[in-house]
Design a binder for these strands. Sequence first.
DNA 1: CTGAAAGCGCTAACAG
DNA 2: CTGTTAGCGCTTTCAG
Lengths: 354, 354
Amino acid sequence: MPTIKEVSELARVSQATVSRVMNGSDRVTESTRKRVMEAMKALGYRPNSAAQSLASNRSNSIGMVVSQLDGPFYGPMMAGVEDTLRQAHKHLIIAAGHGEAAAEEEAIEFLINRQVDGLILLVERLDADYLLPLNERVPTFLINHHIKGLRNQSVWIDNLNGGYQATRYLIEQGHSRIACITGQIWKQDAIDRLEGYKKAMNEAGLPIDDNWIVNSYFEVPGGIEAFDTLQARRVACTAVFATNDELAFGVMEAASEAGIVVPDDLSVIGFDDVLTATYVKPKLTTMHFPMFDMASSAARMALQWIYQKRPPAELAFQPTLVERQSVKPLTPSPSGRSDALAEQLLLSPKHPEK
Amino acid sequence: MPTIKEVSELARVSQATVSRVMNGSDRVTESTRKRVMEAMKALGYRPNSAAQSLASNRSNSIGMVVSQLDGPFYGPMMAGVEDTLRQAHKHLIIAAGHGEAAAEEEAIEFLINRQVDGLILLVERLDADYLLPLNERVPTFLINHHIKGLRNQSVWIDNLNGGYQATRYLIEQGHSRIACITGQIWKQDAIDRLEGYKKAMNEAGLPIDDNWIVNSYFEVPGGIEAFDTLQARRVACTAVFATNDELAFGVMEAASEAGIVVPDDLSVIGFDDVLTATYVKPKLTTMHFPMFDMASSAARMALQWIYQKRPPAELAFQPTLVERQSVKPLTPSPSGRSDALAEQLLLSPKHPEK
DNA sequence: CTGAAAGCGCTAACAG
DNA sequence: CTGTTAGCGCTTTCAG
């Protein structure tokens, strides 16, 4: 690997000059710049980024921590950040936080040791006590995480409004017996989406019954269990707001096992609009969560602040309804069709064919 | 950020000694080691990895390039590598290659500049002319990519046998009219899986008709188009081997639109066993591709070679059949049920309800 | 077992 | 506009 020294010798200039042409900036004669460029090309020169970082205390790369490297949620987020960073010729270093505070902190320390110029975090476990001092060390941007004092470096989605819209949509479709299944109730997303549900129900003058709300966890089995819980509680709902798509898939699966047809017997709305939402049958009606855009916005904000000192400002996204096939209008019928449905849900044996 | 100097002063030793305790190895008195450790803790010392890399020409991190950061295929691969690396206290730096030769090379150069100690590549565009010299610069390991001369640093899956098994299974279930849908035919995976199909058909004495093979691309729309092509060609098949799950999803979707019921009217088998395969209805019968395991094996192999000089050896995985719900035995009936099915497939109008 | 000293490859004032 | 001169923080001989 050739070094700057060799380049400088070949080009008959000082190392400083080579450094200058590398960093584009400074005033260098066109002729010497050309000579240097040629020398670099001739040697196949590649700057050693460790040396650059060490000397400049800057690395032209930003670190990102996500809970997992797979999964339909984090993938687009990583892709969104990578995409805008690449266009800006900055690099991305990703570390997994595994959803645990210790691992998340470790990942962050790793990235800092790596001299990242900034941090984009998609974490759930870290609080202000950790994050605020961290931000003093290295500019830190948050996706989907509220920390007072870091508002301006956050990109978030309006989960409350999303929950409200989803529920409102169900109501507009004629439903009034609407159950809600939440994710881990310590997660802010879960809390906010539930809040939105309550708001919509209240606003419509519909009762909120704790029996109709089941606290589960954001995974397919969580949806299955929640559905079973609903049945066990003899909840006669005609629609359910699953606070994320995985839950919705679980509900659809369990319903199907129980001989309940979605959307004819039961309407289901999800949240997130994960890729798979279009693969299931019926295709899932859900609230679109603009993961890629949010992530790239966060990256843009970070870039502007870190490399151009343009002060960041809080950025909020709104989830938008995507109508597909899992919600059906409840058409009132003379005999009270909604009750018929309720009956069916109540009385159907669990997993009759299995 | 405290430096090694401050630690050495606090501990009243030389920097060299601090370095020694950091790197575990050398002979250091237990007492001084303790003193140093305490000093490090007291100061909250964190080694600067850029400096370490620069001085040692080693970074304790390995680089990985994948085509995309999202998607059901690359996610588990990244997770597998990250998992075993983390356990070995090595770090992972991921870069996206976007499936283009130029970007893949750029990603690799980036990682090398980053002083990665080794490379794990999940690429499709790079050939031996590039890869072999690369391996001289930094140990390079390949996932799912055959390069003569790099065999021993490769982990791959037996796609041919997978295609064979999948087709064979269909045949065992009584099917004989079996279509095959391939991915981009320049991809080795596509070629091999098709080869497996042909082998099984031949072995069973079944005819191979080019009309029954449609070259498509590994995405859901690819499956839809392929299904339409099959119909346009009036191919009267009772089963289709889709050479990856996305294709299978597309087929299922198109079939459903056409009023054809999977698996009653048409059996479908996929390949990869992507997470979503369990979400669709009916759940997809497919060949399991052990992505996570393959990736972690590749990582293990890389670690052993790079840090312990244990010579690597080619590692092959076998895909395994996962029976779910999308394949149904073809029970011969007096009136020739398979013909009835064929008729239905032939005659059904395209997307009748849409 | 420990310290001194010489860089690793690059950047960043400071002169000129 | 370009060269000189110091380091950045750590590792690594080489002595002792």
